[in-house]
């Protein structure tokens, strides 16, 4: 009897704790949504309310009817999708070699892949800037796609290597005995059964690209090449801040991530936690 009261008390305490945490985590998000549905004059009108007085979707319409802003979304999709595809292809090849072969230089290469994640982006940005100008790639999709590989590839390779490591080697050998090449083993056998690992990797890579800010800021300059994170910040540069539009655009800019998050939550979380734990 005494024990069950104690358990119930602990449960209530945990629930209160989680609720406080939820307010901390979500209040800003709720406020973002709330302000996106207000008129710009209402944003700072006292008393401030969570439920807008006259909810309006004007901010969304004005973002969605502005071709310059829609262009930011197109750019973000192109860059994130192409980078994700290239990253997966290169990382699958590398992951296969790292998982299935012993070769000279394997250990240093592994260490190198981990250590590259520690090189500050700003350190690379200075030479990238010069290199891209030299090759005429500055202010183009390729400027972003190519440079994003530097931070997507190490993580993707670590994740895919880890995933292939969990698959039994008997599979490869069975195909090899039937006369299949290693290429065949990789694409016909390992890739199809690695789907969960690859989806998690793809989601994480897409998220990294979609949210990237610094390279996109410095390696592009024209309005036609800007991505969503830069576009949102550019709204702030105008003389009068249209806060409701900025919030609406923030919500629209987060939609792809939210969709991935809602429909592939477990993959998402697997990708998120893979790095520090088993890399």
């Amino acid at each position: 009897m005494k024990k069950s009261t104690k358990t119930r008390l602990t449960k209530i305490l945990i629930e209160i704790g989680l609720l406080v945490g939820l307010i901390y985590a979500l209040f800003p998000v709720i406020w973002m949504i709330s302000c996106a549905f207000k008129t710009n004059t209402e944003v700072f009108t006292v008393p401030q309310r969570i439920i807008p007085r006259n909810p309006t979707a004007d901010a969304f319409t004005s973002v969605l009817t502005d071709s310059a802003k829609l262009r930011y979304f197109l750019n973000s999709y192109v860059v994130a999708l192409v980078t994700t595809a290239i990253t997966l292809f290169v990382a699958i090849l590398a992951g296969y070699a790292l998982s299935r072969y012993d070769f000279k230089g394997k250990k240093p290469l592994n260490a190198f892949i981990i250590i590259t994640q520690a090189v500050p982006p700003i350190t690379l940005l200075i030479p990238y800037f010069g290199m891209l100008v030299l090759f005429g790639l500055y202010d183009s999709y390729w400027a972003m796609i190519v440079t994003y590989l530097v931070f997507t590839l190490p993580y993707a390779t670590i994740m895919i290597t880890g995933y292939i490591n969990t698959l039994p080697k008997d599979l490869d050998e069975a195909v090899a005995i039937d006369g299949g090449s290693t290429w065949c083993v990789l694409w016909r056998v390992l890739v199809p059964i690695s789907k969960p690992g690859l989806v998690a990797t793809a989601i994480y890579t897409f998220l990294q690209c979609w949210n990237e800010y610094l390279f996109a800021l410095c390696l592009t300059k024209s309005g036609e090449m800007r991505t969503v994170p830069i576009g949102i910040q550019l709204l702030m540069g105008q003389i009068t801040y249209s806060w409701n539009e900025m919030m609406a655009m923030s919500i629209l800019g987060s939609i792809p991530i939210i969709i991935l998050f809602v429909f592939a939550q477990n993959y998402f979380i697997a990708g998120l936690s893979a790095g520090a734990i088993k890399s």
Partner: peptide, 29 residues
């Protein structure tokens, strides 16, 4: 609850920055 707790991490840095500039404004919430 776990899903809701992850939400702040999914925003890009410029969204985070602008959201908090709004909330921490002189006359912000």
């Amino acid at each position: 609850v776990r899903a809701l707790y992850i939400v702040p991490w999914t925003f890009t840095v410029s969204i985070v920055a602008i959201l908090w500039r709004l909330m921490l404004n002189n006359s912000g919430i």
